[in-house]
């Protein structure tokens, strides 16, 4: 249970440096408010900007900041000798990865909850599907935690922040939250659906609309598969770093 002590430390480090957390929660909420208000004022806006379509996209976008949180936490620890001290302790590689990941899951749940509570005020129907959507977004959160841990294991603390910003942008642009990928079609759509982010948004949209397991299963599998591969790569990179 050594990982619990490390996990507690990471939770405190994250919560005591709240600027990035506020940014990670506040920016998506601001976007949701602005786009919804524009959508109400301007007639003829695309269907993707209706609250039931846009809120799941914003929820995914919000979770993409988790990569920044986990990446920066790990990279900052690496930049000091703090991690070297811990590497000399009896902590195993699994303790580190659990310790870094666990405190981020409640934060991810709060992010999703804040996003959907905001959406309620903008006209989203209150239903049990919202709770299910928050649950199916957990693998998406794990995917972004894994991306952050992978980047934090490879790059320095000065490199992680801009690289994670690129990840956030790629996630947003390829997710279909800003434009309908089916209308664009072609190679762009194929590339976007080869990545996990469009599947993450579809997963949330379908669950919110009350779609059954058969409908969400392919998207869930795609996201979970990516999360597993990214986490495996992060474990490998972290173990290599431990012996570097």
């Amino acid at each position: 249970m050594r990982f619990l002590a490390f996990s507690t430390r990471n939770r405190k480090e994250l919560l005591r440096d709240p600027i990035s957390l506020i940014f990670g929660i506040g920016l998506p909420v601001l976007l949701l408010l602005v786009i919804s208000l524009i959508e109400r004022s301007v007639s003829g806006m695309a269907e993707i900007f209706s609250i039931e379509n846009f809120a799941p996209g914003i929820a995914m976008f919000s979770l993409s900041f988790i990569a920044l949180f986990s990446g920066m936490l790990l990279a900052n620890d690496r930049s000091s000798s703090f991690l070297a001290r811990l590497f000399a302790s009896p902590l195993a590689a699994s303790d580190y990865l659990l310790g870094y990941s666990l405190p981020l899951l409640p934060i991810a749940l709060v992010q999703s909850a804040v996003c959907f509570i905001t959406a309620f005020f903008l006209g989203l129907s209150v239903s049990v599907n919202v709770l299910l959507t928050i649950l199916v977004l957990i693998p998406v959160a794990i995917l972004f935690i894994g991306i952050g841990l992978l980047l934090g294991s490879i790059f320095s603390n000065k490199q992680v922040s801009p690289i994670c910003s690129i990840v956030v942008q790629v996630a947003a642009l390829s997710s279909g939250m800003w434009f309908d990928l089916h209308q664009i079609g072609g190679a762009f759509k194929a590339v976007c659906y080869a990545l996990p982010f469009a599947h993450a948004v579809d997963l949330a949209k379908i669950t919110l609309a009350g779609g059954g397991f058969t409908a969400i299963y392919p998207h869930l599998l795609w996201v979970a598969g990516y999360a597993a591969v990214i986490f495996a790569l992060a474990v490998r990179a972290f173990k290599k770093r431990m012996k570097a």
């Binding site: 002590a5 430390r9 440096d17 000798s81 070297a84 001290r85 000399a88 302790s89």
Partner: peptide, 30 residues
């Protein structure tokens, strides 16, 4: 690793934890 401990060359403390919390963290990890 269970028998040794190390004070590394550079500062190796958790910056946002208090002095006492840093000590409690290491004790718990061991």
């Amino acid at each position: 690793k269970q028998k040794l401990n190390v004070s590394p060359q550079e500062t190796a403390v958790a910056p946002n934890l208090s002095v006492k919390e840093n000590l409690e963290l290491i004790a718990a990890i061991y």
